[in-house]
Nucleic acid binder design. Structure first.
Lengths: 188, 188
DNA sequence: ACCTGAACACCGTTCAAGT
DNA sequence: ACCTGAACACCGTTCAAGT
């Protein structure tokens, strides 16, 4: 296994275990069996290493969305299943979700990460377009609707993972809220 | 002006100027005219100082929501105006928005911040309840609907501030997306 | 009660040097 | 081309000491 791959894997593991602050280059180097600054031979800086982790996960999401489109079910149900996996991902790996969708330091990155994110959103938009064609979502440009659904699901996950939305006091679950949105958009 | 207030103001100013990483205790102390560790006589640690900034802004939002309720307009329009101010706030002070709604380190805080956040959400929920009474939002428990609208608006702002949603490629504006949601929830 | 300077244990990053 | 140890300039935090 190449050193650069071991570095990305180590960074992802540290991210899951202790959040973004735990991903120090010293800890990454130690976990990958190299020195504290070996990462600089493979990545421009710490931010680029984190971006590499984000790229990996963005591509995994693209696959999730593409596979959901092949499910034998109605378009709206396929979209719902895709969102279910997305929510599950965000709940299982909150730090990865935050890195991908909410980290200010990583957002500035250009190039490969932006491409991977765009591809991911395009795969999601295809699910929305299928729903529009079957009359289960309002017609018109698909991007605003896809963006709304993604932003909503992200916002709900971000709130829940940050402890800002709790089951007490009327909030039930992320998917229940997503269903509320899909129900409203599809006209009940 | 009390030292603790000057520290909070300095932290807020540094936050606006350079984001959360710029809020170092050394810089805060310098801006407030005290030493690098004077903050420890007023706050438990750096995280508590940032929480104090968050509390200040949460209370400001509570006022915004309470005032919107007094506007001479239909309930749905009052809700819309409140969201407009909220979006404007998030666009003008992206780092404050991120601190309040998306920062993992600050989310763990208990006590005063949680209270301020709860009060803020309650004031927003009152706007939603008014819309339910006038028949402009679906009836039933108000919390899930208020939570959905807040999470959606936050998610849109978070995406836009992080450069993850750009005007190119079909996305128009945060308020246009919020209107799409309100339109769907109110039954067009 | 409030503040300070010095110190400690961390960081990211750079650099000269090695293979 | 890839890696290392040492060093630099930062951090948050603690502590002994001052008023």
């Amino acid at each position: 296994m190449k050193t650069s791959e071991r570095l990305v894997d180590a960074a992802a593991a540290l991210l899951d275990a202790g959040g973004e602050p735990a991903v120090t280059l010293r800890a990454v180097g130690k976990a990958a069996g190299v020195s504290q600054n070996a990462a600089y031979r493979h990545f421009e800086d710490r931010s680029a290493l984190l971006a590499a982790v984000a790229i990996q996960n963005a591509r995994a999401l693209t696959r999730v969305f593409a596979e959901a489109r092949q499910i034998d079910a109605l378009p709206l149900e396929r979209l719902r299943r895709a969102l279910e996996v997305f929510v599950e991902f965000g709940q299982t790996y909150p730090a990865r979700h935050h890195l991908l969708f909410s980290d200010p330091g990583i957002a500035a990155q250009d190039g490969e990460l932006r491409e991977a994110a765009t591809a991911s959103f395009a795969a999601f938009t295809a699910l929305v377009e299928d729903c529009q064609r079957s009359g289960n979502l309002p017609s018109g440009p698909p991007t605003p609707i896809a963006g709304l659904i993604m932003a909503t699901t992200h916002g709900l996950l971000d709130f829940q993972n940050g402890g800002r939305l709790r089951v007490e006091k009327g909030f039930t679950s992320v998917m229940a809220s997503v269903d509320l949105l899909l129900g409203a958009l599809s006209g009940r």
